[in-house]
Design a protein around this nucleic acid. Structure first.
Length: 418
DNA sequence: TCTGGGGTCCTAGGACCC
DNA sequence: TCTGGGGTCCTAGGACCC
């Protein structure tokens, strides 16, 4: 039986910040979202203070000040760089690595001759030595079991960061009895409610449940898959190839809200630039463009929410072309006098760009222009060249308050060792 | 005064066709 | 007055994930 390990970085964004701030080791640390709006990562000590995930910063400002919590604005280039280094480390320990998210990966333990727990301990120590990031490792015969094991690796200090659910059936069952059904990977709030109503309260109850037609009816076929995986029957394979995205979205909240058409248009042009860069990076074309705007749902002012989707006659990867369409879309849904809190665009109907190369109608100049643009921005930094009207947005944007230096991705921010 | 951003998959139901 | 049955395709929205 091939075993699967799930490697999950502990409080990832906080841990990245702590690497360069040893004075913050074992201290409460939080990382805030865009506009310093809400908490998106908490160190263990911050969790213990009762600061929930997604908490609005201003609700917890007092508590954090009182407990001297270290606050950071998100520094995604830094986190992405750490992530790459960790994932590279994993490839030295397994032939099949699936990067599941910025801070998680599944690896196959196939062919590991030694005891998988000591092997995982070695992996854990290596990652810490090479990157300074602590990880937890869960082992199981399926992804769902590896995920569950990872929870125990995190919550049981004696496990020393590695926990295996690949042992005797009796041991697995006794562990699953301790796992609330809502903590199963893939069971969210709605589905756990449905399960609780049927007296299915733990992962063990769920595993033992026999009526598959009920599961299909209320939890759809993904529910059945989870059930199989909990029973040790693998349904979700490790996928080592990186599939191109089927949708690419770029959106932001604004602080303060925007009311002028030109400001929103400038922001949307910038989002279009970002999304189209991603699109070209994965060698794709898009043929369906969506634009949306909305007011702040948390205040009592008049609400407005609207979106529009436009299908293009020919798929494209040209920023200028799409930016033009996005602006036209905005003029359809924009309403004078409303305060726009969030806006964004979504690219979909994404296809491979080889079809463009073969097209007789290809505009070679435009395609070269996009390639040059990407090269220059890669070499000299993001937004070195950008559509003129985005400047208006970039200049007006408030910069986050507590962003750490670009320790690993910017020469001027590299630490000096004395 | 202040509440993130970016994905995937699944299903129900409408439109359309023969 | 009676008013089929079955199939496909598409899309919006729900639920989940990090």
């Amino acid at each position: 039986m091939t075993l699967i390990a799930l490697i999950d970085c502990n409080s990832f964004y906080c841990s990245c910040e702590q690497v360069f701030r040893p004075d913050l080791t074992n201290k409460p640390v939080v990382v805030l979202s865009n506009n310093d709006g809400c908490v998106i990562a908490r160190s263990k000590e911050a969790k213990d203070l009762g600061i929930p995930m997604g908490a609005p910063y201003h609700h917890y400002k007092k508590l954090m000040t009182f407990h001297k919590v270290a606050v950071f604005s998100a520094n995604f280039p830094l986190y992405a760089n750490f992530s790459t280094r960790i994932m590279n480390t994993l490839t030295q320990f397994s032939d099949s690595v699936e990067v599941y998210s910025i801070d998680e990966a599944f690896i196959s333990l196939k062919g590991i001759a030694s005891d998988v727990i000591s092997y995982s301990q070695l992996l854990r120590q290596t990652i810490f030595k090479w990157t300074g990031i602590p990880v937890s490792i869960g082992i199981g015969s399926t992804k769902v079991l590896a995920k569950a094991a990872n929870r125990f690796a995190k919550s049981i200090p004696e496990s020393n960061g590695v926990f295996s659910l690949a042992s005797s059936p009796a041991f697995i069952d006794s562990a699953l009895k301790l796992l609330p059904v809502e903590d199963i990977w893939g069971i969210g709030k709605q589905q756990s409610k449905k399960l609780q109503q049927r007296q299915i309260k733990t992962a063990f109850d769920f595993k033992q449940y026999k009526n598959r037609s009920v599961l299909l009816k209320y939890l759809t076929k993904t529910g059945l898959q989870l059930h199989d995986e909990l029973n040790g029957k693998s349904c979700i394979d490790i996928s080592t190839t990186i599939e191109p995205r089927k949708n690419i979205q770029s959106s932001r909240s604004f602080k303060p809200e925007l009311t002028e058409f030109d400001d929103v248009a400038a922001a949307l042009t910038l989002f279009t630039t970002r999304a189209m860069e991603k699109l070209r990076k994965q060698n794709s074309l898009t043929q369906l463009i969506s634009v949306f705007i909305r007011t702040n749902p948390f205040n009592n002012k008049p609400q407005y929410k609207n979106g529009i989707t436009i299908s293009l006659p020919v798929a494209t990867n040209n920023t200028l072309e799409v930016a033009h369409i996005v602006r036209q879309c905005l003029s359809v849904i924009f309403k004078k006098g409303i305060e726009i809190k969030k806006a964004g665009i979504i690219l979909s109907e994404i296809t491979d760009d080889t079809s463009l190369q073969q097209s007789l109608f290809i505009n070679t100049n435009q395609s070269n222009l996009m390639a040059s643009l990407d090269q220059i921005n890669k070499k000299y930094g993001r937004d070195t060249i950008h559509p003129a009207n985005t400047t208006r947005f970039i200049k007006k944007r408030q910069s986050p308050k507590w962003v750490s230096p670009q320790y690993t991705t910017n020469w001027t921010d590299i630490l000096t060792v004395k």
